[in-house]
Design a protein around this nucleic acid. Structure first.
Lengths: 144, 144
DNA sequence: ACATAATCGTTGCATTTGCAACGAAGTCAA
DNA sequence: TTGACTTCGTTGCAAATGCAACGATTATGT
């Protein structure tokens, strides 16, 4: 018989993953939230823009795994702050062409080194577990 | 010089972790949300109760990594649904003594096998990456 | 004993979130 | 061309969230 009390949340992978994700995301967010007033959804949009250049909301939605309404609102805040530019696409006027402004580029030039340093500190902390850990995440992300 | 465009979100551990966590938590939640009307915060409270017996809100807050207001509201919903019981502690009347009702125990007897099966499917899918993966999560959770 | 501080759980409030519905724009087929 | 259908981004709305403040209770120090 299964005893209901021998289920331990601490050994349950979805829970462990959720807590670890929360911890690392918060750790990074602390680095830029106070200093730049950027939220996590805004951060994701900015990063994808820096990496990919001009993109539509739909592109961002697919690439950074966020609901389109979340992307839309993050983009509106970033536009209001002057970091990005939203213009209707010439070819298909349903689409937006979102791009970093000069101010946005300057911001990213300050932000990305912080992110890279954070990534390095995580890798260092993981040490020899890094390879297996990343391999596992890859399987979870690709799989099923 | 660092080129702003060579930062790839797909190789950034906090992001990968966040997406993987979202995927596995949603995958599990689908199994019980429709069938039992249980949310993720409620699920965590229930699991901890099943494992630990009578506990206070503060205990749950610490053990399952949720804000106390989140715990409080989840507990209120569970009490309204008849799954748990809230009574003031005799020894210290600031504390609550939260426990599963008979109905709550019955629920958990149905829920936990689902969770165990899900855990096994994750482990199977991770295959030989499982060990390194769990080791990495442990380092992130413990580590400073 | 008394005043002060700390702890517990709840609640008010502003913000964020997810989902569905919407208008605008484009596609497709007859 | 017309009409039905699809896609894109925004918005309304209800629910969820985080945080601070609160009343109630207990602990601490003098």
């Amino acid at each position: 018989m299964t005893d209901v009390s021998d289920f331990d949340l601490d050994r349950f992978t979805p829970y462990r993953l959720a807590v670890a994700a929360q911890k690392t995301s918060e750790g990074l967010a602390r680095l830029y939230r106070a200093r730049f007033g950027i939220s996590i959804p805004e951060w994701r949009v900015l990063v994808h823009l820096a990496h990919a250049g001009d993109v539509s909301v739909r592109d961002i939605e697919a690439q950074v795994m966020m609901e389109k309404s979340k992307v839309s609102r993050a983009a509106s805040r970033l536009a209001a702050a002057g970091y990005i530019n939203k213009q209707a696409s010439k070819a298909d006027r349903r689409l937006l062409r979102i791009s970093l402004t000069t101010k946005g580029n300057t911001l990213m030039a300050e932000l990305l080194p912080l992110a890279l340093a954070y990534q390095r500190s995580l890798e260092e902390h993981l040490g020899d577990a890094l390879g297996g850990f990343e391999a596992g995440i890859t399987k979870l992300l690709d799989g099923r």
